[in-house]
């Protein structure tokens, strides 16, 4: 049986961008923050009928220097460990109230927001539990590849070889020694209806993926590549550019897993070499030619695997 890859949802186009802003200005993110930018776009895609549960991290801290907040929609800050559990609770409570007739609006989208540390490390188990129980929410993971709010410590999503303050450069250490955890793949293994990757350099794609996530029944997980000028040691004006290069070099492939089937956005036949990606960031400036080759091989293999999944899904053309 073929799954429906053409999810029913109302698409946003460049001609008809929503005016809605879920975040007011005055937030305290670093200039050029790719994470706050991606958040802004994602919420623009969802619209005002949205409730957000937010794990600790840069987004929480810069958006809500108490008693101020940038949020214009209902928002709740919770601990790392239980963000998905709280999201589950909000969803279950609303379902109960709807059943009892005490709520009538069934279209509210519940969103859980976490960083890479909050998602792939500390909040991992409550997220996995919530996906297994099938709660109807969207999880947005903003991956800036380290614990940025506390000053650039490594997470399991930090890429191999990258500098962080806890994998420093020196005679005994030359960046992270372990590979990046492949979070979207683990999320897809939960057999949830919708998993996708996105970047703020592709805003329409990002907004529409988030809207698809809202349209499916059951959990959706969207992994968002979130450039961080401060932690990646690059100029503030480069967040968009670095995300474009990440996609063009296959460092960060854009794909969706819709009811288990892979839809992969294919780059041109000649992707950029990964060195183009590394050279823009201070956190990789120590890489040796051998390191770059190691990553190039890994990136090539990952792309091959993704494309073979997409072929198994028997449709690489039918991209919605």
């Amino acid at each position: 049986m073929k799954a429906d890859k053409h999810l029913e949802f109302e698409k946003i186009t460049a001609k008809a961008l929503p005016e809605f802003e879920a975040l007011s200005p005055g937030h305290r993110a670093c200039p050029g923050c790719g994470e706050m930018l991606a958040l802004r776009q994602a919420l623009k895609g969802l619209g005002p009928n949205t409730i957000v549960v937010n794990a600790t991290g840069c987004i929480e801290v810069v958006s809500t220097p108490f008693p101020q907040t940038a949020w214009n929609i209902p928002w709740m800050h919770v601990a790392f460990e239980n963000a998905s559990a709280v999201g589950s609770g909000v969803e279950a409570a609303r379902r109960a109230l709807l059943r009892k007739g005490r709520l009538t609006d069934a279209d509210t989208t519940i969103v859980v927001v976490g960083g890479d540390g909050g998602t792939s490390d500390i909040g991992f188990q409550s997220l996995s539990g919530a996906l297994e129980r099938g709660h109807n929410f969207i999880y947005l993971c903003f991956d800036n590849e380290a614990y940025m709010n506390t000053g650039v410590q490594r997470s399991s999503a930090t890429p191999e070889f990258a500098w962080t303050t806890t994998c420093p450069l020196g005679s005994a250490s030359s960046g992270k020694t372990h590979k990046k955890k492949d979070l979207p793949r683990i999320m897809a293994a939960h057999d949830i209806p919708y998993v996708a990757t996105a970047t703020p350099a592709h805003p329409l794609d990002l907004m529409n993926k988030v809207r698809k996530g809202a349209a499916v029944k059951g959990p959706a997980f969207i992994h968002i590549f979130s450039p961080c000028p401060t932690g990646w040691r690059m100029p503030a004006e480069r967040s968009i550019e670095i995300a474009k290069v990440a996609v063009k070099s296959n460092i960060y492939p854009l794909y969706e897993v819709i009811h288990g089937e892979y839809v992969v956005k294919r780059n041109s036949k000649n992707p950029l070499p990964v060195s183009e990606y590394f050279k823009l960031q201070g956190r990789f400036k120590h890489l040796t030619a051998q390191d770059v080759r190691t990553i190039q091989d890994r990136v090539d293999a990952t792309m091959d695997r993704l494309l073979s999944y997409a072929r198994l899904s028997d449709d690489t053309k039918g991209r919605p």
């Binding site: 005055g26 305290r28 220097p65």
Partner: peptide, 25 residues
């Protein structure tokens, strides 16, 4: 003026959406 803590709602709720706009970055 930024909101003073004594004028906060119980439970620390922030009842005014988007009041960060008072802070001019």
């Amino acid at each position: 003026a930024l909101m003073a803590w004594k004028s906060l709602a119980l439970g620390g709720d922030i009842l005014e959406p988007g009041n960060s706009a008072r802070f001019l970055t």
